[in-house]
Amino acid sequence: MVPKLSWLRLDSHHMDPVEFFSNHIFRMVFLGTTVIGLVAGALGAFAYLRKQSLISDVIGHAALPGALLAFLAAVTMFGVNGRSMLLLVIGAVITGTLAALFANTIAARTKVAIDTAMAISMTTFFGFGMLLLRFITNNPFPGKGGIQDYLFGNAASITRADLTTSIAVGALAMGLMVVFWKEFTLRSFDPVLSTMLGFKARIIDTLMFTTIVIAIVIGVKAVGFVLMVAFVVTPPAAARQWTNTLPGMVMLSGLIGGLGSGFGAYLSISLGNVPTGPVIVLVLFAILLFSLLASPKRSVVITALRRMRARRALKQELISEGSTR
């Protein structure tokens, strides 16, 4: 049986950049995802250097119940639009931070290791989120249509207000990073020295995780919670292959995240009705693979070549040594 590739509608929806950017919705999608990728990439660099990249997976999953609780609070208590980006971000930041703290507390206070602690925290919060989602879809709440988009995102639902909110909140997180640059750096590279110099570890950690949580939750509308982990983990891992300095890494990681997301969003729209988040994830993964294979100093290929050359040189040396004796 020849597999039919009818699902891959490459040509029928193709559009050129001019057509793309003249459309208001598409422009919103492009800008929105670029901002998300930029913020998540830049702040993800610190999670990467702290060697705690996976905490972003926990935060992403745990943000779901927060966003849904915010929706419920908005429609039942305040009678306002439950899909407001600001409320959603506040709810998601609260449960995301709680989940990260919960995982770290389990690892610190019990004999359960950090990876299992993360799994416990993630599934408990996400399970609760799925119960809430079922509750909301089963009951007649106003404005609940499309609430399932919180899972995988729907970039086409980004409004101008959403874009403004994500830029403002993202700028706040980036601002915190710039203001506390010295503290974040010291805490990442030499936690002991940082404590000895009198910086409060708990406060710096909380600040640092809050910025990472913000970076993750502003992605909900466009990308959804489930795939945000890739936005935080992949750009720094790719950027690390090209640079050896912290400012270089944060900038390059933000750039890779921003450009990769913008390009992914463009692809997802020009391919037709394709969810944006997964396409961006694949673009970012392609950038990572390219970096691992082709970066001039560290790549897999260069290392293999260098090893081969060293082996040959050693062999030559040993042979010539043997012949002189």
Partner: peptide
Amino acid sequence: LLAGDAPQGLIFPSLFAVGIL
């Protein structure tokens, strides 16, 4: 080439993304 637990977080999102697509 990669630090910490990043390797564990790099491959599965892409495969999952393919599934969701």
